[in-house]
Each structure stands twice: as structure tokens, then as C-alpha cells.
């Protein structure tokens, strides 16, 4: 009985969103929304801001690209209304929010698949296991040549291209590959904040390997070859595609992208309308910008959080004792995991 009621309730929410989206232009809504944070999430926020301004032309929206960490720094001071993040909030940032009295809604908006790429002419690498990836990218692994990674591969020096250490992409890769072990990512990788530089780097050297968001691979398919990753739980080789990222089989390198909305700003009409628009359009915008939409149930969950302005705030990615919680977004983004 209860589940039927909640299903009807969810259906009502979704239908009401559908109706609202058909609104014509509204010029009477005023205000200003400050967004800052990850450059990975930026294209989605830009698409949201641009689309929203088509219906509400007098709301001024500014989107910055200070990086996930830089964005959270401003967010915890209350300088921004929404923070773009390519990883969940860290315990230190959460503590800073608490201290400043900033509470927030945590809303996943899309999936990104971290893609490992090699040169087009690389004939030997077709898939890698997580252990082999550790050999290549960590100081403990310390593979100098491809032969060190798997016997039978050529004895050619591996060149590594990686995103900048300030990026959420680097953080996420480090978390998956290094995790809690006491090693670290190699310091002799060529890093760049600009992913196009990584594309050029890998496509220019036959023995190179690199990683970045799936959007950059999709745009450069003709120059690069993506590497399938062996899913540690099923043992199957999986290539990063929209299907494998969405169904979670491309693990552990598919990650959710978030927006964090300041709960105080969320009282303002223009922020509420914008967040509603963002969530409504997120699946389409994710696709348009080269990312992958989350399952519909996640967006419904997001809307429920926003409706419950008192109990919907907080993060799902930290436990009560401030330990990191990880796993597939469908497992973690649940009401019972919400910590404030």
C-alpha cells in the first residue's frame, strides 16, 4: 500500500515537472545565480544556464571554472550558490561547510567514464586489469616498459599523460588506483590542465598511455584507441560506451558528476527554478555535452531531496564518522545514506 502511494507520488512529481517545462518565456523573474567549480561539469552547467536563459531572460547566471576544489573553497564561504564538482565533497570541505553554517543539496547530474587511451598504432594493448593499471601508474608498480606490465609486450618505454593534479579527474583516478594503499601516483607523468594537450600527447607518441573524460575520447576517436578495463567483480573486459557506463559494468572508472546547491540560496525563486530546470534537462544535456545520463530513478531522488528542504540536505558520500563512502551511484545515493 505504502509503495503504491509513493509510486503515485513520484509519478505526480515527474508529471508536474513535465508540465512546467512547457512554459513560455518569463521576463518577470529576476536575480543572479553564481556557479563555480569543476571544468568537467562546466559544459553541462553552461548548457543549463543557456537553456534556462531562453525561458527566463532576466536571470543573470555566471558560471566559473575554478576546479572542483577551488569551487568548494568559494562554496563553503557562501560566495557561490551552486558548486560544480567532478567528485563528491571531501570530509575537510564538508567540515568547512558545517563551520560556516552552509548546508547544501547534493545532486548527481551525469556520469562520466574515465577513459584510458593509447596510440592508434599500439597493437598490443587491448585490455588492462586494475593490477596492470597499478603497475603503470603508481610508484610501487614502477613499470618502465610495456614488457614490465605484461610479459610478451614490447620492451618500449611507457610515456604517461595525465590530467593536472588539481582536477577532480586526477583525484578520482587516484582514489580508484591508489585507494587506501600507501603508494602514490607516479610523479614523472606529463600532466596538463588542458585535456586537449593530453590528446595531442598520446596521439603523438606510439608508446604512450593516458586517461581523461570520455567526452574527449569521443571527439578524438580517429586519433586514439581506448583500452577496455577488466571489471574486478565480473572479470569481463569492458570498453567505455554509453551503455556500459550507464549500466555500471564499466567499473571502476565510471563516476558521477555533481552539483551542490547552497540550501540558503535555494530559498530564492530564481535558484529553485534553475535547479528544477537543471534536473529536468540533465539527461538531454549530459548526452549533448558528451556525458552519459544517470538512471531516471536518481533524478527522481534528486527532486525528492530538493522538495524536502529540511531533511534533504547533506552528503551521501560520507558516513557519520566522516569516512568516505564509495560505490555505484545507485547504491550510495539513497535517503538512508544521507548525512548532515
Amino acid at each position: 500500500m505504502k509503495s503504491v502511494a509513493s509510486r503515485v507520488f513520484i509519478a505526480m512529481i515527474i508529471s508536474s515537472f513535465g508540465l512546467l517545462s512547457s512554459n513560455a518565456q518569463n521576463t518577470s523573474l529576476r536575480g543572479k545565480i553564481e556557479i563555480d567549480g569543476s571544468s568537467t561539469v562546466y559544459p553541462i552547467s553552461e548548457a543549463a544556464a543557456s537553456g534556462f536563459n531562453k525561458s527566463y531572460s532576466n536571470v543573470q547566471i555566471n558560471v566559473g571554472v575554478s576546479g572542483t576544489g577551488g569551487g568548494f573553497k568559494r562554496f563553503t564561504k557562501g560566495e557561490t550558490d551552486i558548486s560544480d564538482a567532478s567528485r563528491p565533497i571531501k570530509d575537510s570541505e564538508f567540515a568547512a561547510c558545517k563551520q560556516a553554517g552552509v548546508s547544501f543539496f547534493e545532486l548527481p547530474v551525469a556520469y562520466d567514464g574515465l577513459t584510458l587511451v593509447v596510440h592508434k598504432a599500439n597493437t598490443w594493448v587491448d585490455h588492462l586489469t586494475l593490477d596492470e593499471i597499478r603497475k603503470i601508474f603508481t610508484t610501487a608498480g614502477g613499470a618502465k616498459t610495456w614488457a614490465d606490465v605484461r610479459s610478451g609486450w614490447p620492451e618500449k618505454t611507457i610515456q604517461i599523460f595525465a590530467p593536472g593534479t588539481d582536477s577532480g579527474t586526477f583525484d578520482y583516478f587516484k582514489e580508484v588506483v591508489v585507494g587506501k594503499s600507501d603508494t602514490s601516483l607516479r610523479s614523472d607523468m606529463s600532466t596538463s590542465e588542458d585535456d586537449n594537450v593530453l590528446v595531442t600527447g598520446v596521439s603523438g607518441s606510439p608508446n604512450a598511455i593516458g586517461f581523461f573524460g570520455v567526452a574527449y575520447y569521443e571527439e578524438n576517436k580517429d586519433k586514439l584507441k581506448s583500452v577496455a578495463v577488466v571489471n574486478p567483480t565480473t572479470g569481463e573486459k569492458v570498453s567505455p560506451t554509453a551503455t556500459t557506463i550507464e549500466d555500471g559494468s564499466y567499473a571502476p572508472f565510471s563516476r558521477p558528476l555533481f552539483i551542490y546547491v547552497n540550501a540558503k540560496s535555494f530559498q530564492r525563486s530564481e535558484v529553485r527554478q534553475f535547479v528544477a530546470y537543471y534536473l529536468r534537462q540533465a539527461p538531454a544535456m549530459a548526452k549533448q555535452t558528451g556525458y552519459v545520463a544517470l538512471p531516471a530513478s536518481i533524478y527522481t531522488q534528486c527532486m525528492m531531496r530538493c522538495r524536502d528542504s529540511k531533511n534533504g540536505v547533506g552528503t551521501h558520500y560520507l558516513t557519520n564518522s566522516m569516512e568516505k563512502r564509495s560505490g555505484a551511484v545507485t547504491q550510495v545515493y539513497r535517503k538512508e545514506n544521507l548525512v548532515d
Partner: peptide
């Protein structure tokens, strides 16, 4: 400075059935 109010029907997270 102004305080901006939304009418009963316009809040995207509260209004339902007021199309």
C-alpha cells in the same frame, strides 16, 4: 534591494496540479 515572492502556482518543487 527587493524580496522576491513566487505566487502559489509557480514553485517548481511545491506546486502540483496547478497547471
Amino acid at each position: 534591494y527587493f524580496d522576491q515572492f513566487t505566487n502559489l502556482a509557480s514553485d517548481p518543487f511545491l506546486s502540483m496540479g496547478m497547471e
